[in-house]
């Protein structure tokens, strides 16, 4: 085996391990909904839609109405829609326009939401 072959094999293994670590072993920062209520009397969470959802994971209380304020700043067509399948919500997210989605979780658990094509994911943790 030539030297360049050995280098390519080692680089390949490092590349695969890096991809695995970078994409599949990332830790999410969970943002808890604050107790401060908005003018409408409900808790609000701002979610920025750019290359995914920021914050990626949010924790909200069981049985309380919470408003998720999505603002899409990423023109990628993948992110045009947001789908909260467990809450029966599919909404278009016009660019740079706040779209408020109200949810009242009825069961505890972790619920994944995604873009219309199921490529980008966010997490709602109901506690």
């Amino acid at each position: 085996m030539t030297l360049d072959n050995i280098i390519v094999i080692i680089a390949g293994i490092v590349g695969i391990v890096f991809v695995y670590w970078f994409f599949l072993l990332k830790k999410e920062k969970i943002i808890e909904v604050s107790d401060i209520k908005g003018k409408d009397g409900f808790s609000h969470i701002d979610i920025t839609v750019e290359g995914g959802y920021t914050p990626e994971a949010i924790a909200i209380p069981l049985g309380e109405k919470t408003v998720l304020d999505f603002t899409r700043t990423d023109p990628s067509s993948c992110l045009e829609e947001v789908v909260l399948g467990d809450f029966n919500v599919r909404r278009e997210l016009p660019l740079h326009k706040k779209v408020s989605i109200e949810i009242t979780p009825k069961t505890k658990g972790t619920f994944i939401y995604s873009c219309g094509m199921n490529m980008y994911h966010g997490k709602i943790i109901v506690e």
Binding site: F23, E50, G51, G52, C78, M119, Y120
Partner: peptide, 14 residues
């Protein structure tokens, strides 16, 4: 553009 913003979140797409 989509790749860069996705990589910032350590995600990847098509």
């Amino acid at each position: 553009r989509a790749t860069i913003s996705a990589l910032r979140h350590r995600t990847a797409n098509m």
